[in-house]
């Protein structure tokens, strides 16, 4: 009973906050609703027994991605009127996308329902006695090792690509060289002289 209650609570909150993400007037509020949405999605994952995915969702999306979203959106000076202007123009396209997604989901669920036995034979059974971090790790680093490493390579390429695309060498800046500063001794930079009074100092 309490699980059903929790499911409907998380699911309703998730849908409500998702709707509020696109309908909120203020983009900062949108990001905050998005964060609430992530939380409720993590709650749904917990109900499924996937505690590792739930924690990962919060760590990665709430802890890193949404912070950067919020960081950028807070600093932007957004013209709300202009933001709303394109709404009617893009509405058909958005509806089309939503329909494609919905149809795909129906197909996926339908295929799962129709051939659940065949599917279950192809998939790895979910072990109930080990924590799911260990279960995922066992699979990821043995059976799917090459796929996993391939995904890692793709991420590395994306990382380097992002740096190459956004990096520009700026001239005229004087970056600090910390080790040079630390190595510098008083006798390199200063000298003590005992100049007689009235003769001035040689510079």
């Amino acid at each position: 009973m309490i699980q059903a209650f929790a499911f409907y609570l998380f699911a309703t909150m998730l849908i409500a906050s998702a709707v509020l993400v696109i309908s909120a007037r203020n983009p900062v509020h949108s990001v905050l609703w998005l964060i609430l949405g992530f939380f409720n999605a993590a709650g749904l994952m917990l109900l499924l027994g996937a505690e590792f995915i739930a924690m990962l969702l919060v760590i990665v999306y709430v802890g890193a991605v949404a912070v950067l979203f919020l960081f950028v959106v807070m600093m932007l000076d957004i013209d709300f009127a202009e933001l709303r202007a394109g709404f009617v123009r893009y509405l058909p396209f958005g509806l089309l996308l939503a329909m494609v997604l919905a149809v795909e989901m129906i197909f996926a669920v339908g295929a799962w329902k129709a051939g659940s036995l065949e599917m279950a034979q192809r998939l790895v059974p979910i072990p109930s006695d080990v924590p799911n971090i260990e279960a995922i790790g066992d699979l990821l680093y043995t059976r799917y090792l090459y796929v996993f490493e391939g995904a890692g390579l793709v991420l590395l390429v994306a990382l380097i690509g992002a740096i190459v695309l956004t990096h520009r060498a700026r001239g005229g800046i004087r970056p600090q060289n910390i080790s040079e500063q630390v190595k510098r001794r008083p006798q390199d930079a200063t000298r003590n002289i005992d100049q007689p009074v009235g003769q001035g100092v040689e510079l």
Binding site: V58, I59, V67, L70, P131
Partner: peptide, 16 residues
Amino acid sequence: NVGLLYILAASSIGVY
């Protein structure tokens, strides 16, 4: 089982 991940997840909310 995911105690340490829970700590990481919950403390990442602190910044908000």
